[in-house]
């Protein structure tokens, strides 16, 4: 009983220390503009903008080093929001950074997977579970669809599957279009 208590207390202390350390180590230096920009970015963490993640891109925009049209997952809407926030002109998505695609999630063909763990290391949001020489799988709700796990896979067993619409996620269409069609 006592050992259990001590062990639990010990774990609590260690975790508390880790959290405390994290809060200091990763303390975001209060730059509200960067945070505001970061809040608009889709957090796919794909790096297509040319920066290692959304936050660095936000920082670059804030510093005036990057343009607002470099994030393909954010798409036109994202650019519009950024333009609004920064009081700039809207401009179409820069083609060299990629194109806007429907949201997808990665899918690992579990028969082909050799358990090399390379995809786990590539995933920016730890959405893949598995262990060395064990089959790997993607935790779907966590996957941002960044495609970073595709390239490292030596047996090409990862594919991107578009997210299908369900009754829960279905959206009503914008009425005007329908009316013009029927009228």
């Amino acid at each position: 009983m006592l050992t259990a208590l001590l062990v639990m207390a010990g774990i609590a202390v260690v975790l508390g220390a880790a959290l405390g350390y994290a809060s200091i180590r990763f303390k975001v230096e209060g730059d509200p503009l960067v945070d505001k920009i970061d809040a608009i970015l889709p957090q796919t963490q794909c790096g297509q903008c040319g920066y290692p993640g959304c936050k660095p891109y936000a920082q670059a925009i804030a510093n005036g080093e990057a343009d607002i049209n470099q994030c393909p997952p954010g798409g036109e809407e994202g650019i519009r929001h950024l333009a609004d926030l920064l009081g700039r002109e809207f401009k179409p998505l820069s083609e060299e950074h990629g194109i806007e695609k429907p949201k997808s999630v990665a899918f690992i063909d579990e028969q082909t997977c050799i358990g090399c763990t390379l995809c786990i290391q590539a995933c920016p949001v730890d959405a893949i579970v598995g262990a060395a020489k064990q089959m790997h799988t993607v935790v779907e709700p966590l996957c941002t669809g960044c495609e970073l796990c595709l390239a490292p896979c030596p047996v090409d067993c990862i594919t991107m599957e578009p997210v299908v619409e369900t009754v829960e996620t279905w959206k009503w269409k914008y009425p005007v279009i329908e009316i013009r069609q029927t009228a």
Binding site: D38, P42, C54, P124, D126, L142
Partner: peptide
């Protein structure tokens, strides 16, 4: 989902 991804990325 974005908040979750941000947290997980930071972690």
């Amino acid at each position: 989902a974005a908040d979750q991804a941000r947290d997980r990325f930071e972690f």
